[in-house]
Structures are given as structure tokens and as C-alpha cells.
């Protein structure tokens, strides 16, 4: 334990308004702590610089999963355990439900929140690709009110995002219509469980008569931030899927990917495996189309 508890202040207002008022009074001064699975790791390593922390844990207004006609609203305080256990998340946002089972261990999932995962903004975060290929939106809240933006514009750079210093992440909205799409999500981690992603690829697609009418692709750990693979998508859009299209898409992905060498993997490995995963997804699509 390299951090010193006494060097920090932690308070728990116990209500959403309580937290927002605090943040409005002194924007940027209070760091929210939800499940603490990022913050407490930094604290233990003596890397937690923020002195003042405000707890979101136990605030019911942030921990909800609500299903409306077209989408699921997930409170930022919902844990990955909440997500993986929820029937409609399982059926309507199955990629997210699958990603939820990958976030560390059971003990981690019962504390780790989706809000914390997104705001922390690791390029390797497991929920990000799943949300990106479903056109998810995020809802931000402050004393000034709420606003909704596409999740694809939430991350603005390495560990930077579109929130203002007085804002909290309030909810994530996942459209249900993608349940009709063909879906793909595969994580390649350092081992089977308790593994940070070395690369992951998510995809949703609709084909009509062998032609790709809609396709969304997103990857983890291929760029400094979780991001859609627009250029790769463009190669496939409106194309009849076949070996050539698949090859070109894979090449486009290798071009578009900007991974790095780090302690967990190499850039070359990441690009190539991402391209292989894309090949796997597209071949699955092809096989599914070929079936009568």
C-alpha cells in the first residue's frame, strides 16, 4: 500500500444532487469515485494525485437499468454484474452483456461500474467496442441539466473526454434495434480470465442479398482511444461480401489501426490479429448468408 489514506479526503453526499452541487461549487476539484476499481488501484500504487474524492457508490439514482421501447437506459452506477444478470441486456444488448462477463473477476464485476469504465477511458476498456457498434449514446448531467451525445464522440483523446468539470456521466443508452443485426465480439487477452485486452473487435452488420447494407466496427487497443473503424467500414459498405472484399477490408484495417508496443503486446501483433478477427467476423457473415 503505497498511498496514504490521510492524504485524501473522501465524502459521500448520498444523493445525486448532493454530488452535483458539490461539483458545481468547485468544478474540477472533486473526483467522483464509483466502484473504485481504477481509483483504488492507483491509490495503492501511490499514483492517486487527486486529493478530494466524492463517492457515487450506493446512490440509487445512478444504479438502474430501464428498458423503454427502442432502447435500454443504463445508469452510470450500474455494475457489470448488474449488466450481465439483466435479461434485456442479455437479449437486446448481448455484446455488452458478453463484455460485462470479461471485466476482471466476479469480485471486480460486483464493484466495477459502466460509468467508471467509460470515464476512465482506457483504450483497452471492454465495454467500449460493444457500445460503439450499437450507436450508443451517453447522457451527462450537472446542476445545469442533462445532455446526450453519441458515445462515439465521448472520447476525445488518450484518457480525455467530452465532459465538463462539473459534469457526471449519468447514463448510457443502448438502442435495441441492433439485436436484429449480425453481431461479433471477441477479446484477445493475456489469458482466459482476469485479462486486459491486447486487442478486441466488435462488429454489427446487416446484409441484403449478400451485399453489406450496414456495418459498424470498433476495436479496443488499436488506437489511443476506443474508436470506430470508419475507414474499414467504408471499404465494405454497399459491397457484395466475398474473399476480395474481405481481403481489402483487412488491409484497410491494418492501415487504419494505430496500435502501440507496450508491456502487454506488440503493435504488429495487434494489427494482424485485429485483421484476423475481422476476417473471422466477415467469414461468419458469408457463411450465414450462404445458408438457405
Amino acid at each position: 500500500m503505497r498511498g496514504n489514506a490521510e492524504a485524501h479526503e473522501l465524502i459521500a453526499p448520498g444523493s445525486l444532487t448532493g454530488v452535483l452541487e458539490l461539483m458545481a461549487r468547485a468544478p474540477g476539484e472533486w473526483m467522483p469515485i464509483a466502484g473504485g476499481t481504477e481509483i483504488m488501484v492507483a491509490h495503492a500504487a501511490g499514483r492517486l494525485r487527486e486529493k478530494k474524492l466524492v463517492s457515487l457508490w450506493g446512490i440509487g439514482e445512478l444504479r438502474f437499468i430501464e428498458v423503454s421501447g427502442e432502447s435500454i437506459a443504463i445508469g452510470a452506477g450500474a455494475t457489470f454484474r448488474d449488466l450481465r444478470m439483466h435479461d434485456t441486456v442479455q437479449s437486446g444488448a448481448s455484446l455488452l452483456a458478453k463484455a460485462a462477463t470479461w471485466i476482471g473477476s466476479i469480485a471486480n464485476q460486483s464493484r466495477a461500474t459502466i460509468g467508471g469504465n467509460l470515464v476512465n477511458g482506457s483504450p483497452a476498456a471492454d465495454s467500449s467496442p460493444a457500445l460503439l457498434v450499437c450507436d450508443a449514446e451517453v447522457e451527462l448531467i450537472s446542476m445545469r441539466g442533462k445532455r446526450r451525445i453519441p458515445y462515439s464522440s465521448f472520447h476525445t483523446g488518450y484518457k480525455r473526454n467530452a465532459m465538463t468539470p462539473d459534469e457526471l456521466l449519468y447514463a448510457v443508452h443502448v438502442p435495441l434495434r441492433f439485436a436484429q443485426h449480425r453481431q461479433y465480439l471477441r477479446k484477445v487477452g493475456t489469458r482466459r480470465a482476469m485479462a486486459i485486452s491486447k486487442v478486441a473487435l466488435a462488429g454489427t452488420a446487416l446484409l441484403h442479398g449478400g451485399v453489406v447494407s450496414e456495418i459498424r466496427l470498433a476495436a479496443a487497443s488499436l488506437a489511443p482511444l476506443p474508436a470506430r473503424l470508419y475507414r474499414t467500414e467504408a471499404v465494405l459498405h454497399g459491397r457484395a461480401l466475398g474473399p476480395l472484399a474481405i481481403r481489402e477490408a483487412q488491409e484497410a484495417l491494418m492501415e487504419e489501426a494505430k496500435p502501440i508496443d507496450d508491456i502487454r503486446s506488440t503493435a504488429a501483433y495487434r494489427s494482424r490479429v485485429a485483421a484476423n478477427l475481422l476476417g473471422e467476423f466477415l467469414n461468419e457473415l458469408l457463411t450465414a448468408e450462404a445458408r438457405p
Partner: peptide, 11 residues
Amino acid sequence: LVNSCLVPVLQ
């Protein structure tokens, strides 16, 4: 189940 090393006691 939680890992008590990651729970600030206030929570």
C-alpha cells in the same frame, strides 16, 4: 463478493 483491497471503508 468484493476485493477488500479496493474498497474505501467509507463505502
